[in-house]
């Protein structure tokens, strides 16, 4: 579903991402681990065509992102680290608008509320203005936007940073559900624990290079941390 082929991005000659090859298939949760500046966000932004590749290709559902920028976005849902919404509108209204933009302008009120509830947003907040929301609540609307889009691939950029442990756990459950529904998920994260929990594969990045690809099922938590730190310090 998501595929990077020798994907590279340079800024004025400085590599932010070098020769990345990776593939995320339906039912996969691929966790990208790495410090800030490792190239995780760059990878996600390349898939979204917010930036364009210096060389190599980013493919969504077999289509090259730079050639079909709008078509590929139909298959992509995106949850940024900070979900920012229109503060004047309620959570439900925000969701309704983004759903309409993604082509689902036929959701009725019940359906909208269903997505919000499924994302874990408490019922009495559905029709409150987003301006009054906490970060976690906005994040949940972001998840609802992704759910409502019913996209085949999900791009997550540090989605749980700033969420409390309970919300974080709910989020993991939701990711597993989506995985079981056959969504291909690419998640950039600092959170080794979460990666081990939900990931079907884990990639460790450093300075724009994918250093290792691991199967978390074969590792304990301690192993993952040890390997991660090894790659960070050599």
């Amino acid at each position: 579903m998501l595929k990077a082929e020798a994907l590279s991005k340079h800024y004025n000659g400085t590599p932010a991402l070098s020769d990345l090859d990776l593939e995320v298939n339906p039912g996969d949760i691929y966790c990208l681990l790495g410090a800030n500046g490792a190239g995780k966000s760059t990878t996600i932004r390349l898939f979204l065509n917010f930036i364009s590749a210096t060389s190599g290709r980013a493919l969504v559902n077999g289509m090259e992102v730079s050639a079909e920028p709008l078509e590929t976005k139909k298959y992509l849902a995106y949850i940024p680290e900070q979900v920012m919404l229109y503060p004047h509108l309620t959570g439900a209204e925000n969701l309704e608008y983004f759903a309409a933009l993604s082509g689902h302008d036929d959701y009725d009120r019940g359906r909208i509320e269903e997505f919000l509830t499924r994302s874990g947003l408490q019922k009495d907040a559905h029709h409150e203005r987003v301006g009054t929301y906490s970060k976690g609540m906005r994040q949940k609307v972001g998840i609802a936007v992704a759910l409502a889009k019913q996209a085949g691939a999900l791009l997550l950029d540090e989605p749980t940073s700033g969420l409390d442990p309970e919300a974080s756990n709910e989020f993991s459950l939701l990711l597993r559900q989506l995985r079981d529904d056959g969504v291909a998920i690419l998640m950039a994260t600092h959170d080794l624990f979460r990666a081990k929990e939900v990931g079907s594969r884990v990639g460790i990045m450093r300075r724009g290079v994918l250093r290792a690809e691991l199967d978390p099922a074969e590792l304990g938590h301690a192993d993952l941390e040890r390997i991660y730190l090894e790659h960070m310090h050599d």
């Binding site: 979204l48 900070q82 920012m84 919404l85 993604s102």
Partner: peptide, 14 residues
Amino acid sequence: EQGTLALLLSQPVS
């Protein structure tokens, strides 16, 4: 600046 552009441009609209 208010951060909504990211979510907007992740939709299939130019």
